[in-house]
Amino acid sequence: MRRHIVWDMGGTLVDTYPAVDAAMVEVVRRHGGEVTPDEVAALTRRSTGVAVEELARRYDIDAAELEESQSELKAGWVRTPPPVMDGAREAMAAARALGGLNLVVTHRDRASATSLLTSLGLEVDDLLCAPDGFPRKPDPTMYSEVLGRHRLDPAGCLAVGDRPIDAEAARGAGVDSAAVVTPGLDLDDGGARWRISSLHELPGLLG
C-alpha cells in the first residue's frame, strides 16, 4: 500500500517557478532582449542552471547576472515566500491519514529549505538536502538514504517531482513516481509511472 510521499521541493511542493521565470525574463529585457515566460519555463523545468546557461548564450548576458537575480529572489523569500503548490497540503494530509510520512529530498541548501518550510507552515517528517553531502539527482542516493533512515519498503512510497531527474532518481531507488507536468509544456517526464497536472490527483494514487 502506497502511503509515504517523497517530495521534491521547488516546483513540486512549493510553487517557485512563476517568480523564477519572471526574474529571468526581467534580466533579459533589461538587456534589450525579448523572451516569453513560456520560453523561459521550458528551460527552467529542465534546471535553473540550464536556463542560466542558455539565456546567457542566447542574449549575450553575463551568466553571473542571471544567477544573481536568483540569489536576490531567494533572499526575498525569507520575508515573502512563494506559495505552497495547490493541492500539496491536501496530499500531505492524505498520506498522514494512511499513517504515512511526508519526506523531502531537494537540491536546495538546508537553510533555504528550512526557511521556506517554516515560513509556509509545512511540517515534514524528514528533509535531505544535496549540499549536506549527497550527490545530486538523478543519482538515487538521497532516495535510498531517506528510505533506509525510516526503514521503508519502496513499494509503499510514491515520489513526486516536476523534472525528469526526480523520476530517474526515484526509479534508481525502486520507487514509483508521479511527474507534475506544466500544462502547455511538452517536457520529458523521466519515465515517471504517472503524469499529473495537479497535486489534487495525488491522493488517488495512495492507498
Rank of each mutant, 00 (worst) to 15 (best):
T106E: 03
V104T: 09
S112E: 15
A155Y: 00
N102A: 06
C129R: 05
L128G: 07
G133D: 13
A91M: 04
V146D: 08
A130L: 03
A94Y: 06
L101M: 10
V104L: 08
M142I: 09
D86W: 03
T114Q: 14
V124D: 11
L103R: 07
S144G: 15
R151Y: 04
P154L: 05
G100N: 02
F134D: 08
A130G: 07
A113F: 06
A88P: 01
G121S: 05
V104N: 12
L98V: 00
L103E: 10
S115G: 14
P138I: 09
L98E: 05
L101R: 12
C129L: 03
D153W: 01
V124G: 11
D132Q: 01
E90A: 15
S112H: 15
G87Q: 05
V105W: 05
S115T: 15
H107F: 08
R149Y: 09
L101N: 05
L128H: 12
A113S: 10
V124K: 08
V124L: 09
R96K: 10
R110C: 08
T118E: 13
D132I: 04
D109R: 01
C129G: 07
A159N: 09
D125N: 05
V104E: 12
A93D: 14
E145N: 06
T141M: 11
A94G: 05
R108I: 14
C129D: 04
V105E: 05
R89I: 00
F134P: 04
A113I: 07
G133H: 13
P131Q: 13
S112T: 15
L101Y: 00
P135D: 07
A113L: 06
V160P: 11
E145H: 13
A113P: 01
G121H: 07
L152M: 01
D139H: 06
G156K: 01
A95N: 01
Y143I: 11
D125P: 07
G121Y: 06
D153H: 00
D109L: 03
A111D: 15
G100E: 09
L98G: 01
R89E: 08
D126P: 05
G156L: 00
R110V: 11
G148E: 09
M142F: 08
D132E: 11
G99T: 00
N102E: 10
D125T: 10
S144N: 14
D86N: 09
T141S: 13
A159E: 12
S112F: 15
M85D: 00
L128Q: 10
A94M: 08
K137G: 09
E123H: 12
H107P: 06
A155C: 07
L117T: 06
A91R: 04
K137Y: 11
A94Q: 10
L127P: 02
H107E: 12
T114C: 10
F134W: 13
T106N: 07
